[in-house]
C-alpha cells in the first residue's frame, strides 16, 4: 500500500517517469475519447490501433533500428490509412460500418503479424521489442518517451479547449454546422486525426489491443455523472489520468506485495482494468443515469401508478356505496 502511494505521488525517479507518461496519456485519451464516443467513433479508434501494427513493422524494416518516434510515425501513417480505407469502402460499397471496421481490424492486424514474422527471420534477428506494441510495455518507458507523450498530450488538450465550441457543434449536429457554412469535413477530419494521434501515442504503454479502452472507458464513465459536455470532458480527463497512474502503480507494486514470484503484472491490462472497474461502479451507482437509480425510478413510478389506480377505485366505490345503501 505504501509503495502504491509512493508510486502515485511520484517519489521514485524511474517510477515518476512512467507515472507522468501514462498520466498524461490517460488525460489526453480520456478527453479526446468523449468526442469519439459521442460521434459514434468508438470502434474507429480500435481499427486505427490495429492498423498501426504493419506501420510499425514497415517503419522498423525501413530504418532497421528501434527508434520510437519514427516507429510511431509509421504507426500513425498506417492508422490513418486504415481509417481512410473504412471511409472509402463506406462510400464505394454497401457494406455496413461495423463490418468494414471488422474487415480492417482483421486484415491490417494480420498483415502486421506477417510482417512481424518477416522481421524475425530477417537479418536483425529479433523483433526488437515490436511485440511490446501489441500488449504494451509501460515499464520500459524512458524519460524521453514520457516527455514526448506529455508534450503531444498537452497539444491535443489545448486544441480541444480552443476548438471546444466547434467540436461540440459538429459532434451534435453536423447538418446544422454545414448549414452555418462550417467546413464539417475538415472538422470531422480533425477529430479523426486527434483520435489517431491519441491512439498512437498510447501504443507503447498499453498496446494496440487495449488502447481503445483508454479512449472510451473514461469518457463513458464520465457520461454517467454529468449532462454537460464541458464537465464530461474534464471529468473524463481526470478519470483517465488517475486510473492510468493507479493502474501503472498497481502493476509496479503488486509483484512485491503479492509475492508473485518475480513475474511482473502487465501495465496496460492493469490500467484498463482500473478504468473498467471505475466504469462498472459508476454505471451502477451514478445518480441519474445509473442502473440502480433507474431501477428505483422505475419501481417508484410503478407504485405511484398503482396507488392512483387504487385511489380511483376506492373513490368510485365510495361514490357508489351511499347511493346503493339509499
Amino acid at each position: 500500500m505504501n509503495e502504491l502511494v509512493r508510486f502515485i505521488t511520484m517519489q521514485d525517479g524511474p517510477n515518476r517517469t512512467v507515472a507522468i507518461g501514462v498520466g498524461a496519456l490517460g488525460v489526453a485519451c480520456g478527453m479526446v475519447g468523449c468526442f469519439a464516443l459521442l460521434r459514434r467513433r468508438a470502434l474507429l479508434g480500435d481499427a486505427v490501433a490495429h492498423a498501426s501494427l504493419p506501420g510499425i513493422c514497415l517503419a522498423f524494416m525501413l530504418i532497421g533500428e528501434r527508434n520510437l518516434p519514427l516507429l510511431l510515425v509509421g504507426a500513425l501513417v498506417m492508422g490513418v490509412v486504415g481509417a481512410s480505407v473504412i471511409g472509402l469502402l463506406h462510400r464505394a460499397t454497401r457494406v455496413k460500418d461495423d463490418a468494414l471496421i471488422a474487415i480492417v481490424i482483421g486484415s491490417f492486424f494480420g498483415l502486421g503479424v506477417v510482417l512481424l514474422s518477416v522481421i524475425q527471420r530477417g537479418p536483425s534477428g529479433n523483433q526488437a521489442g515490436i511485440q511490446g506494441f501489441i500488449y504494451g510495455k509501460a515499464a520500459s518507458m524512458v524519460r524521453a518517451d514520457a516527455i514526448t507523450i506529455s508534450v503531444v498530450a498537452c497539444v491535443l488538450v489545448a486544441m480541444l479547449f480552443a476548438l471546444f465550441k466547434e467540436l461540440r457543434l459538429v459532434t451534435f449536429d453536423s447538418d446544422f454546422a454545414r448549414g452555418l457554412g462550417r467546413p464539417v469535413r475538415a472538422l470531422d477530419g480533425l477529430i479523426l486525426a486527434i483520435i489517431c494521434v491519441c491512439t498512437v501515442i498510447g501504443l507503447p504503454a498499453v498496446g494496440l489491443l487495449m488502447v481503445v479502452a483508454l479512449l472510451i472507458v473514461p469518457a463513458a464513465t464520465a457520461r454517467c455523472w454529468t449532462e454537460s459536455l464541458g464537465t464530461m470532458v474534464v471529468l473524463a480527463g481526470i478519470i483517465g489520468g488517475v486510473t492510468a497512474i493507479v493502474g501503472a502503480g498497481l502493476s509496479a507494486v503488486l509483484p512485491a506485495a503479492a509475492g508473485a514470484g518475480g513475474s511482473t503484472w502487465p501495465t496496460g491490462p492493469m490500467i484498463v482494468l482500473s478504468a473498467g472497474s471505475v466504469f462498472v461502479v459508476s454505471a451502477l451507482i451514478a445518480p441519474r443515469r445509473g442502473v440502480i437509480a433507474g431501477l428505483v425510478r422505475h419501481h417508484r413510478a410503478k407504485r405511484q401508478i398503482l396507488a392512483r389506480v387504487r385511489a380511483e377505485r376506492v373513490g368510485a366505490g365510495a361514490g357508489a356505496g351511499p347511493g346503493g345503501a339509499a
Partner: peptide, 23 residues
C-alpha cells in the same frame, strides 16, 4: 433540420443548443 437527425441524449442543455444558432 428534422428532429430525428440528431442524438437527443447528447450532453447539452436547451440553452447550449439555442446558442449554436449564434455560431
Amino acid at each position: 433540420p428534422q428532429r430525428e437527425s440528431v442524438d437527443w441524449d447528447f450532453p447539452v442543455s436547451a440553452r447550449d443548443v439555442v446558442l449554436m444558432g449564434r455560431y
